[in-house]
Design a protein around this nucleic acid. Structure first.
Lengths: 340, 340
DNA sequence: TTGAAAGCGCTAACAG
DNA sequence: CTGTTAGCGCTTTCAA
């Protein structure tokens, strides 16, 4: 079975097969301009019979229009991002646009590299996670001269458009709720990620707000790698060993929160009577645990959806609903935050 | 603040800014051909100063080389696929290649559409989930004349290369393990997805193997939508109401399995004494539950990694390790399958 | 080591 | 409604 080196098919082949000029074939295939039903049918038949697939590289070069939207996210391992991608993919489904994804692993240098790579395809728009970028990255984004939507976070200065939540405020509101519920000796657990600015902002919002009520975090701990559920268990155990008097544990994500929850339930500790708990993200996945962990939805799907819509609107020449969209997540108290 | 409609920058701008011919600028920027250190430096400085980003659309058209790898998967909502993507992304990081993702929602018509769309960018390779495709899709894949790697599943006839596991065998081995452990009255729960061929194959392998031992599934149930953990609880409860005498429950994924596990623990049922349990996928996420659910790893990351490597090898002219890679997952007995 | 010419496959713009 | 003419911005090829 030998592969005869086929010459890739071009418009010209369809043109010859159908006896219609290349230009008209092109019009039929793009549904553009007026073509008589007869020629249209002839061309479509020929294209289908040959299995012709247009070459968008040539098309985009000629028209200087590209239907790609560059999407740059830190990671695929954190469930958060696939959900954002889902929202983007969903919103773009109604358009001609197609998402292209790049992953930075939370590293600014890799972000630059991925961004450069993507810009070289001259995408019609860019969706990028976070507001913190290196100077070269910011320069590239500004130069690109296409819609740029920074997502997830609204605490900072967007280059162009922005869709997200305020993580500082998320931290603040959780702190307020915890104080209001009467807890005072509070521990914090999170991931060890100096470059996760959003987690950092939540933590800052949280501690600042506690401070204003004269409360200081009693203990904190950070982890890296491994199963979050197990880490949640282990860290919770360790922290309670150090500070048996804690009455509240705030986790920077729902998975470690769930681990902590399971540990406390195993130990027969009264939740939320003796110890209250809260996580972050509103991980739908976890509905179904013995207790519903208090949490705050990060609006992942909607963020993706709105961001994609902004791009689509701009590309279509519409002005969209505005350039900075701050979503306001609300606390889901679940069963672990209000004593009662 | 007005945006002066900037003309996009081209090689010519760098050429003029550096006083070097376009051709030589191109050579420097691609590290191709011999260029004197002096000119090289001059050109690089000019490119950097201007913030020049090459236009790969033009480049690819001229060279007919594209560094894109098309990746087509059914969904982003099922954690399985982001993990595969991670593997792909990771393997391609070492190369010039860049993944482009498309999502089919398990719909053959959408698969065709996404495939057509991607092929129109003339990717250097294609990674696509599953071995079942519509005739038009198969035709496009065959015509494309680039490496095609079908992933996840090895039960069928690959068009070209293939990396995955045998889901039929996975079902069979689980059935054998369950029988060997002495269980006899077995219930099955899964997702309602006529188009998820892999789940179907596992189910078939499972039931056929039981049948050979003279055992028939005592009950089965399928769900769609909603939180898997909750569904697992609910379906388990309902099934045990219908058949209180069941001694084993096989779940088509770990999430509903975990829901079932939690339900049984709540009810104080002896696991695996009275009832044994098993899921599928080896979801790392769940390590940390009160019991380790028996499961079977689907090798998601490795599948992505190997598939990407096959493409990379072929693109580089290397022949790679062979064209059909069948990984062999093993049962992880956890705490819920062997009575003891 | 450098440069000039000739396309890559398609579409915008303009004629007919 | 259909066809012709020029490129799009780069790289291949060949000559200097």
């Amino acid at each position: 079975m030998k592969k005869p080196p086929r010459r890739p098919m071009t418009l010209r082949d369809v043109s010859e097969a159908s006896g219609v000029s290349e230009m008209t074939v092109s019009r039929v295939l793009r549904n553009k301009g007026d073509v008589s039903p007869a020629t249209r049918t002839k061309v479509q038949a020929a294209a289908k019979r040959l299995g012709y697939v247009p070459n968008r590289i040539a098309g985009s070069l000629a028209s200087s229009h590209v239907n790609l939207v560059a999407v740059i996210i830190p990671s695929l391992k954190n469930m958060v991002f696939p959900e954002v991608l889902s929202g983007i993919s969903d919103a773009l489904d109604a358009t001609e646009l197609q998402p292209v994804f790049g992953v930075t692993e939370y590293r600014p240098d890799k972000e630059e590299q991925v961004l450069f790579e993507m810009l070289s395809w001259r995408p019609a728009g860019i969706i990028i996670a976070g507001l913190e970028h290196s100077d070269p990255s910011r320069a590239m984004l500004a130069q690109a001269d296409v819609p740029v939507v920074e997502i997830m976070d609204t605490d900072g200065d967007p280059i162009d458009a922005c869709v997200g939540i305020s993580h500082r405020r998320a931290g603040r509101e959780m702190a307020e709720a915890i104080i209001a519920a009467g807890y005072r000796r509070i521990g914090f657990m999170g991931t060890q990620m100096p470059l996760d600015h959003r987690a950092r902002k939540r933590f800052e919002g949280f501690t600042h707000t506690l401070a204003r009520s004269g409360i200081e975090i009693a203990d904190r701990d950070f982890y890296a790698g491994g199963s979050a559920l197990i880490k949640g268990r282990e860290m919770t155990q360790a922290m309670l060993n150090r500070h048996p008097d804690l009455d509240f544990l705030y986790y920077s994500n729902d998975m470690i929160g769930a681990g902590g929850l399971m540990y406390l339930l195993d130990r027969g500790i009264d939740i939320p009577g003796q110890i209250g708990l809260a996580g972050f993200n509103g991980v739908e996945l976890l509905a179904g645990l013995p207790r519903r962990l208090a949490t705050m939805d990060a609006c992942r799907f909607e963020i993706g959806h709105r961001a994609a819509r902004i791009i689509a609107d701009r590309v279509a020449g519409r002005e969209g609903d505005g350039d900075v969209v701050q979503l306001t997540p609300r606390i889901d108290f679940g069963d672990t935050l209000i004593r009662g």
